[in-house]
Structure formats: structure tokens, C-alpha cells
Amino acid sequence: MVEELRVKARELLKNKQVELVIGYQRASDGVSATPCFIENEKDTDLLIWDAYCVYNLSSYLKDHPGRKIGIVAKDCDLRSVVVLLQENQLKRENLFILEMECQGVIDERRLQFSDKQNQEISFAQKCKSCQSSKLSISDYVIKDRGEKRKTPDDYDEYGPIRKMEVKATSERLKFWQEEFFRCIRCYACRQICPMCYCPKCVAEQAQPFWFSKAINLEGNFSWNVTRAMHLAGRCIDCGECERACPVGIPLRDINKKIEKDVKELFSYEAGSSTEAKSLFACFNKNDPEGFIK
């Protein structure tokens, strides 16, 4: 797979189809991966592909406006490209999508804290419910010839959410207060998120202040809830926020809850179709109105 990727990237740069290829290279620790930005066809051998390629590289697309870019993307990353196209943040003609058929990526945090480190690969939670590619927006697909990793049929991706939903409000509040208490407001969740592209985030506005800058429960709660609400109908569950969080807040659970609500209320799944409009840009007279009181 990796050789095919390198050959294709070299060809794209050589033919000037793209000016830049955003992909993965080996990190300095010799094991994990790190994003790489290749402009010269000579450097394409840096590209790698394996289960350590965890990053959703589409969050880098906004850094290079107007340039023709080749991007290495997994299936989940494709969904974020779809949303970015929907929201007019990208021009399709400026993009060459190199899709990698993915067998799941590693959860490095769980790997770090697990006792049986070398015995089994610890796949990221998001990969357990991955319904591999339904989208056909890629320009070039690099197939995995290996045996397909099976996702269990009975795996309920909303399992943890259902467990949480039945708890009393006070219990849920307590849970999230304890989680948000540890938040250090580094905004890694925002910065890594492909959907967080606002030139000025609400958290940075000083006149007026929308919520406290103080790193305490009040400010932390406001920040995390605001971030979650701004992703309603837009989050494609790449899980990057949770991965980036240095203090281990289960941010994906919040996103999944909203994803579940959006699905149930509006039968809408973010990034699942190239034709669909974004959730808040479409109106249907049958939309539920239970919240208007």
C-alpha cells in the first residue's frame, strides 16, 4: 500500500497536479506517525501508512488557501472533507483525495495504560463501529489487500451514551463536572478539530466576553458545552478532540450524544452524503418542534 501511495504522490507532484501532499511520516520515536507536508517529489519516500496514522489531516487544509493539495485520507477523514465542502471551506477542484483503505487505527493512550501492551493492538473506539467507505468522493483509492478486519455486528456505538442517558440529571452533572474540572483550557480540542475553522473563536472574544477565561469549573463548563453545541450536525466523529486532550476528558461521548440526537430527530448524519446540505442549512416542515415552548 505504502509503495503505491508514494508512487502516486510522486506522480501528482511531478505532473504539477498538486503543489503539496499532506500525509503521514514516521515520528522521531520511531514508532508513531506525525503529519508531513511534501512539496518536492524527491521527498515522497517519507510517506508511511499504518495503524499509527491516527491524525485527521483535513484540519490542515485551511492553512493552505488557494493551493492545490493532495491529501491522504482515511474513511472517517473523508467525512470531514465532505462537511468542509458543504460549508464552502474548500474548493473541490483544488483537492486531490488519496483514500487509504483503513483497517482501524491505534488508541495510543489505551496502549500506554494497558497492561498487555504487546499482546494485542488496541484499536481506537471509533474504529469499532466503522462502516467502511460508503462515500465515493476520492480521486484515487489505495486498497488494502490484507484480510478485512471485522467489526462485531452487535457492537452498539451508542452503548456508553445509552448508559449515561438513563442516569439522573444530578448524576450526569456530577460526572461532567468532575471531567471538566480537569480541563486546562489548552484548546487542543478546538485546534485539532477539522470543523473548528472560525477565524475568531467565541472563546477568544473579549468584547463582549461570552464566558469566563478563568480556568475553573464555570469557565471550563461553558467552554466545553459551547464547543459541543457548535459541532451539532457537523461533527463526523473522527475522535481527534478526545485523542488530543492531554487530561483525558471523554469528549467523544458528548459528540456522540449530539450525533445520536441529531440522527433521531432529523434522520441526519454529518458527512455521509456529498449531495446533502448541512443540517442547519435545510428546513423541513416535518422537523420536530418539541423544543419550542
Binding site: C186, Q191, A206, F209, K213
Partner: peptide, 24 residues
Amino acid sequence: RSCISCGVCTFLCPTCHCFDLVDE
């Protein structure tokens, strides 16, 4: 190039000490 401009490195650093003054 790959930096995402977050605050992980500075906030978790035992020596970084830059601060902001805010009126609240």
C-alpha cells in the same frame, strides 16, 4: 508546519510562565 497552535506544550511545561490579564 504540523503545529496546531494549541496550548498543550506551554500549559504543561514546568517552566513556561506567560500569562494574560483579564478583567472579569
